[in-house]
Lab assay of single mutants.
Amino acid sequence: VTLFVALYDYEARTEDDLSAHKGEKFQILNSSEGDWWEARSLTTGETGYIPSNYVAPV
């Protein structure tokens, strides 16, 4: 399991995006899409895309 933590708040801009709150942890499901990674929030269980530069490894 690849875990990352949000460094900043991010507000989803499309229905495919996933909002993130600073300190929230995510499981990365797919990081092969360049700057946008598919992730699952460990807080809400929701999945979507987050900007890779907004997260760091735990």
Rank of each mutant, 00 (worst) to 15 (best):
E24C: 06
D16F: 15
T14P: 02
G34D: 12
V55K: 00
E24H: 03
A6L: 06
T43N: 08
L3Q: 06
S52F: 08
A12V: 04
L7E: 03
V58W: 14
E24F: 05
G34N: 11
A39Q: 00
Y10I: 12
W37G: 00
T43L: 12
W36K: 14
N30D: 11
W36V: 09
Y8C: 15
T44Y: 03
L42G: 02
A39P: 00
R40Q: 07
S31I: 11
V58N: 04
H21N: 08
A20C: 14
R13M: 11
R13S: 10
L42P: 01
D17R: 13
N53M: 12
L7Y: 03
Y54W: 08
Y10K: 00
D17C: 15
G23E: 03
E24K: 02
V1P: 12
A12L: 02
V5G: 01
L18R: 01
A20N: 01
A56H: 08
Y49W: 15
D35M: 11
G23W: 05
S52Y: 09
R40A: 04
D35F: 13
S52Q: 07
S41D: 02
F26S: 00
G45C: 10
D35W: 10
E38R: 13
S41Y: 03
W37A: 03
A39L: 09
D16G: 15
S52C: 14
Q27T: 10
A12I: 03
A39M: 14
L29E: 04
I50H: 02
A56M: 10
E11C: 14
G34S: 13
G23Y: 05
A56V: 13
L29I: 11
I50K: 02
G45I: 04
Y49M: 13
N53S: 14
N53A: 14
S32W: 09
N30P: 04
V58I: 13
R13K: 12
N53Q: 11
V55N: 01
S41L: 03
Q27E: 14
T44G: 03
A6P: 00
E15T: 12
D16Y: 15
A12P: 11
V55G: 02
S41Q: 02
V5R: 03
N30M: 07
F26L: 08
S41C: 06
D9H: 06
T14G: 15
V1K: 11
P51A: 05
E11L: 10
L29P: 03
L42E: 07
P57L: 09
L7T: 04
Y8V: 07
Q27L: 14
S31K: 13
Y54S: 11
W37M: 06
V58S: 07
E24N: 03
N53H: 13
Q27N: 06
W36C: 12
T14R: 14
K22Y: 06
L7W: 03
R40G: 02
L18G: 01
V55S: 00
E24P: 01
N53T: 11
V5S: 03
T47P: 00
G23M: 03
E15M: 11
A56T: 11
Y54F: 12
V58R: 00
W36M: 15
D35R: 08
I28S: 01
